[in-house]
């Protein structure tokens, strides 16, 4: 089995789907000869040429809007938004058009497209190269929202996303692109959309997370196991919409304590939904107040290092929160 990093796994998944289906194409800023600013599409231009790897104008609205049109015309676009922070000009197209097309056409017009965007902070990106935007989309029926945290899941989920007949937002932790490595099998496999994964078994409490924070949660869980003998279960949500409430509740039933971790800011973040589900459907299993460990409610990740570090979560902060909750 090959070891690869997160971005290589995403690239391999897209490459396999492009080989398998001539309707699949990639468009976005600098995705062509440059191979994307993070190099996720590196080598694909050389392999598939300018008719399938298409450098777009510098305009996110139409990267998505043209993708919607192509999807309506039965192609399978993969639209890359260079940074999740730049997705906002395309909000109208995503929210009003892609998300609502199937419903508003009485189930006749479908939008089978993937919108990929690197998200998240901790890379010196300041307010506009660090955002976590998943909550906006997870609030929107008609969309699917995926955030993988391992290369295995990233490849399997990007393939499922490309094959899905609905618009899928696929957020990639840019900090984890090269940092996160793992085994990825050669050849065909997929990971189903809408299924969370118990990344680590434990009995004392459950950490719910996704993306880069799921990766950190695993490190934190290993640490507290060694130092404190606390066994935390880690649930990697993988898909936020549709959410796997069954796995979420099963773990809570087992541990009775929940720590929800995301690097998006706290208020109205995705963790609020998890907390609400646990409170309403898991009340009788609850042994402690549901905890959320999230970024502060400020408008973005500041640039200067000490402020960035203050904003960002890390395995140490997560480990501290695990200890506090375990002690309750």
């Amino acid at each position: 089995m090959a070891q690869m990093n997160l971005l290589e796994a995403i690239r391999q998944g897209m490459d396999e789907e492009m080989e398998h289906d001539p309707r699949v194409f990639i468009t976005g800023e600098d995705v062509g000869p440059r191979g994307g600013v993070f190099r996720v599409t590196q080598g694909l231009f050389e392999k598939y040429g300018p008719t399938r790897i298409i450098d777009s104008p510098l305009a996110e609205l139409s990267i998505v809007g043209v993708g919607i049109g192509a999807a309506l015309a039965d192609l399978r676009p993969i639209c890359e938004i260079q940074f999740a922070d730049f997705i906002h000009p395309a909000m109208n197209q995503i929210m009003n058009e892609a998300a609502r097309m199937y419903y508003r056409s009485g189930g006749t017009w479908t939008v089978p497209m993937v919108i990929r965007a690197p998200y998240g902070g901790g890379v010196g990106g300041g307010l506009y190269h660090s955002q976590s935007v998943e909550a906006f989309f997870a609030h929107t029926p008609g969309l699917k929202v995926i955030i993988p945290s391992t290369p295995y899941d990233a490849k399997g989920l990007i393939k499922s996303a490309i094959r899905d007949p609905n618009p899928v937002l696929f957020f990639e932790t840019k900090k984890g692109y090269r940092l996160i490595k793992g085994d990825v099998p050669e050849g065909e496999y997929t990971v189903p959309i809408g299924e969370a994964r118990v990344a680590r078994e434990g009995s004392d409490l459950t950490v719910y997370s996704y993306g880069m924070m799921a990766h950190y949660a695993m490190q934190a869980a290993e640490r507290v196991s060694q130092t404190d003998g606390i066994e935390a279960e880690v649930v990697d949500l993988r898909t936020l919409l549709p959410l796997d409430t069954k796995t979420v509740l099963e773990s809570f039933k087992k541990t009775g304590k929940a720590l929800i971790v995301h690097e998006d800011n706290l208020t109205m973040g995705f963790g609020a939904e998890i907390a609400a589900i646990l409170a309403s459907d898991g009340f009788e299993y609850m042994d402690a107040p549901i905890q959320r460990l999230c970024a502060p409610d400020i408008p973005g990740v500041p640039f200067s290092h000490p402020m960035q570090d203050y904003f960002m979560l890390n395995p140490t902060k997560i480990a501290d929160a695990i200890r506090d909750l375990a002690a309750y």
Binding site: S62, G65, G67, G69, L72, A73, D74, P77, S105
Partner: peptide, 21 residues
């Protein structure tokens, strides 16, 4: 194609469909 109310959104779809051709 199904159309919405925010104006001009459909023009981008038409460009995308022409692109698909």
């Amino acid at each position: 194609v199904s159309t919405s109310a925010p104006v001009a959104t459909q023009v981008v779809h038409a460009a995308g469909m022409a692109f698909a051709i």
